[in-house]
């Protein structure tokens, strides 16, 4: 079995969200739905010190993330119908809409907030890794769209060889929960998982 993975280069991302919009366009997603989301983290303070000099501890960075097609997905474990499944050939996790009851448990359990129930459609929806493009030898649309070439996609061996580490910066959870196939090259400002400074500050946009 091949296992595919995503790569995110935090030293290249400008936070422009072209990836997110390209995905929305390609997948024809309505308001309120995004399979790829860009999380913004900002922290720190700017003050005047006793000499009247302005000093700042501010930092900020972005993380672009979709479903991580985990090795141990929480979504497939809890899904009562087996609709949420991990493909034996590609390792991509997707929804079989002919089985899904739209209960929303996958959404409740995923620590990356990837699946969401589309009430109008009556089933859960999420990133499927652009499986039809991948089987045609192309990369997912978000990867192709990134103007800064901050994203990549490939087999987990290819992606791990790019030099990142497995999804271990804030605002993500510790990777041991689901063993995600997501590798990150962090920017200098990136904060460790669980850091008090690592809060996502754009909830209205990503939740």
């Amino acid at each position: 079995m091949v296992q595919y993975a995503f790569y995110f280069d935090g030293t290249r991302c400008t936070g422009c969200k072209t990836c997110e919009l390209a995905c929305k366009d390609y997948k024809d997603l309505d308001v309120g739905f995004a399979y790829r989301k860009v999380y913004e983290v900002t922290y720190g303070d700017t003050q005047k010190d006793s000499n009247g000099c302005v000093v700042s501890t501010c930092g900020g960075y972005t993380v672009s993330m979709a479903c991580n097609h985990c090795y141990e997905p929480a979504c497939t474990k809890v899904c009562p119908t087996g609709a949420m499944h991990k493909d034996g050939e590609t390792g991509l996790v997707s929804v079989n809409v002919d089985r899904c009851v739209g209960c929303g448990y996958c959404h409740m359990a995923c620590p990356y907030d990837a699946p969401k129930v589309d009430r109008a459609k009556g089933h859960s929806v999420k990133c499927d890794g652009c499986v039809e493009r991948v089987t045609n030898g192309e990369k997912p649309v978000c990867v192709e769209a990134c103007p800064a070439r901050a994203l990549d996609f490939g087999t987990v061996d290819q992606i791990a060889a790019l030099g990142g580490t497995q999804a271990n910066i804030a605002p993500l959870p510790v990777p041991t929960y689901t063993d995600p196939n997501f590798y990150i090259k962090p920017s200098d400002d990136a904060q460790p998982v669980g850091s008090a400074d690592g809060k996502a500050v754009n909830p209205l946009e990503v939740l």
Partner: peptide, 25 residues
């Protein structure tokens, strides 16, 4: 009634033993 597609409800039994929700149902 909160299910998006109750037509597929019978598949819920395929998750018994794995999914806590299937066990509940």
């Amino acid at each position: 009634t909160h299910l998006g597609n109750p037509d597929n409800a019978l598949y819920v039994f395929t998750g018994v033993g794995r999914s806590p929700l299937s066990n509940e149902v």
